[in-house]
Design a protein around this nucleic acid. Structure first.
Length: 566
DNA sequence: TACGAGGAAA
DNA sequence: GGGCGTTCCTCGTA
């Protein structure tokens, strides 16, 4: 493969990569660089990717070589790669594996590659790394306390030197899990669980699996449980997920209700934890203010309980900081992170890498779509103006109010009706972030709104009516982001969203991806006010989905009244 | 003992 | 940088 002026990529010296979106070779180039590059902006014609240290290390940990990455860039580039990019990529990728952590009796040893004595000396002087190293055994070996394993990995990651942790795991109590005979595990689910269990260029047993919503991440978790065969702790974001895991585990494995229990703090003293215990992150980190010293976090000891052979972190992209701290203390337990969107807006992806593990497996959402596992979906961004009488107020508003003013643009009410008119019979969800805006729209459409205030019973009733087709349109506040029992829909209109949250956008699209019985496509619309901060936020939100292969049609509000579908 | 309402937290 | 939803606890009512 060689560079060719007709190719779609331009690689710049700062390791950013431009992709001509309309070049006929764009799709192949996108697929080739996706494993080691992340999308940072995607205006219509020219997409920008960045090759970051973390994206390189994630790729390297799956076994991808620097040569393979350079080959992918070169093979789709217009011009020869800048020399420093070649050097940088080789150097950064080469860092993975140069430091290893191994077991040494009761302690650990940090080893550098032969000749890396100076590197080790430099790291020993590093502010965060140095204090965690104990005794220099040789030019390239330090001893480390076993308890410092997590903190050291995190500190080394911050210092720019990810460490390949080969110190292995302590065995949890044996607890075999057999998958139900009628459960068909899809190839990608089995591959994902294997990739977790066996690792890539390292020893495996910890790391993150990224799969689209509806692609069956719980099945990956079950296969992992059957591979490990030890007692398992499953951590989730909320109780609905706890229930879902419990249902699925009972239905699709040989586990009995006694085996699978939600962690209940009030359980009778002396009662054993179930071999498969489910617990929310909030429960784990719950604080009792004013409790006697040492008892402020009554549930934290759960995670350190000796018997777990595997800890599963559901929605691992949402791990709160305290759970990172806890996780640093249990590096000798196998850890599986599951997520649809391994992106965070707080820049803590490095902590996920260091403390849960590298990304072991992912499939672009579009690939699963092609294979028919998730529904095809179109995405459209509808651009609206602010009404003339609102513009002065917007211009005068302080920055921190601008987002809201743009988001609740009154013109969205008419636009929403126009969008709904394009799909007159399709089951439609409308999701927004501002309750008063949603109230107005619910009145316009004469459709019910579910918000956080809606009692559980009422939610169930409305979901049921929607499922049975008695209710065509349902409005949802932010409850719609994560409610797992939300019914399937064909059209989803996002009328407002939180700042630039990529994962919120992705979760919302995910609501549409369950395959439709007749193979019909789903339609996702996002309403955005022109020439306001909302445009910037909207484009940042779209990045993750653009990375997954989705493109957004741009519709002007004037085009909406046109009949038919685009 | 079971529940729902209200408040605090992150 | 702010609004919203969730979860937990506590306390009141049956």
């Amino acid at each position: 493969m060689a560079t060719d002026p007709l190719n779609p990529l331009i690689v710049q010296a700062d390791r950013s990569v431009f992709l001509e979106a309309f070049n006929p070779r764009a799709d192949a180039a996108r697929a080739a660089i996706a494993p080691f590059a992340e999308l940072v902006s995607s205006p219509e014609h020219l997409h920008t990717y960045r090759v970051s240290p973390l994206s390189l290390w994630n790729a390297a940990s799956t076994g991808m070589t620097a040569d393979a990455m350079l080959g992918a860039l070169e093979g789709h580039a217009k011009f020869p790669l800048p020399g420093n990019v070649v050097t940088d990529i080789r150097e950064l990728v080469g860092r993975w594996g140069r430091l290893t952590l191994d077991r040494f009796d009761e302690a650990l040893i940090l080893s550098a590659a032969p000749g890396d004595g100076p590197l080790l000396s430099e790291l020993a002087r590093h502010r965060a790394v140095g204090p965690l190293l104990r005794e220099r055994m040789s030019d390239v070996v330090y001893t480390v306390d076993a308890g410092a394993r997590g903190e050291l990995k995190r500190a080394l990651m911050d210092a720019g030197w990810p460490v390949d942790d080969r110190a292995g795991y302590t065995q949890g109590a044996a607890f075999p899990v057999t998958l139900a005979p009628d459960l068909t595990v899809r190839d990608y689910q089995r591959e994902a669980a294997q990739a977790f269990y066996q690792g890539g260029s390292d020893t495996g047993g910890s790391g993150v699996v990224v799969l689209a919503p509806g692609a069956g991440k719980t099945v990956v978790g079950m296969v992992a449980m059957s591979l490990v065969g030890q007692r398992t702790l499953v951590l989730t974001t909320n109780r609905t997920s706890v229930n879902q895991w419990q249902r699925e585990l009972l239905a699709r494995t040989d586990l009995t209700p006694d085996d699978v229990q939600e962690y209940a703090p009030g359980r009778p003293a002396g009662r054993e934890l179930a071999p498969v215990t489910l617990c929310t992150y909030q429960m784990l980190t719950h604080r009792r203010p004013g409790a006697p010293a040492g008892e402020e976090h009554p549930h934290m000891s759960l995670i350190g309980a000796a018997e777990w052979g595997l800890i599963i972190y559901d929605e691992v992209h949402l791990l709160p900081a305290p759970v990172f701290r806890l996780t640093a203390g249990v590096q000798a337990r196998r850890r599986l992170g599951l997520t649809a969107t391994l992106v965070r807006e707080d820049g803590r992806e490095g902590d996920v890498f260091a403390l849960i593990g590298p990304k072991r497996y992912d499939q672009p959402w579009k690939t699963l779509e092609t294979q028919g596992w998730i529904a095809a979906a179109t995405c459209a961004e509808v651009r609206l103006r602010l009404p003339a009488d609102e513009r002065p107020a917007y211009a005068a508003a302080p920055d921190r109010q601008k987002h809201r003013l743009a988001a609740v643009n009154p013109a969205k009410r008419a636009a929403l009706r126009a969008v709904l008119a394009r799909h007159p019979d399709a089951p439609t969800l409308v999701i927004g972030s501002y309750l008063d805006q949603l109230d107005l729209m619910a009145a316009d459409l004469e459709a019910p709104l579910i918000s956080g205030k809606t009692p559980q019973r009422e939610r169930e009733r409305l979901f049921q009516a929607f499922r049975e087709g008695r209710l065509r349109t349902l409005l949802l506040s932010k409850v719609g982001n994560f409610a797992l029992d939300l019914p399937d829909a064909e059209v989803l209109v996002q009328v407002s969203g939180a700042f630039g949250s990529r994962q919120e956008e992705a979760q919302r699209l995910g609501r549409l991806l369950r395959p439709k019985a007749d193979g019909r496509a789903a339609h996702f619309y996002s309403l955005v006010t022109r020439e306001t901060v909302e445009e910037d936020h909207a484009h940042h939100r779209q990045l993750f989905l653009a990375e997954q292969g989705y493109t957004y049609d741009i519709l002007d509000e004037s085009e909406l009244s046109a009949p038919g579908v685009h």
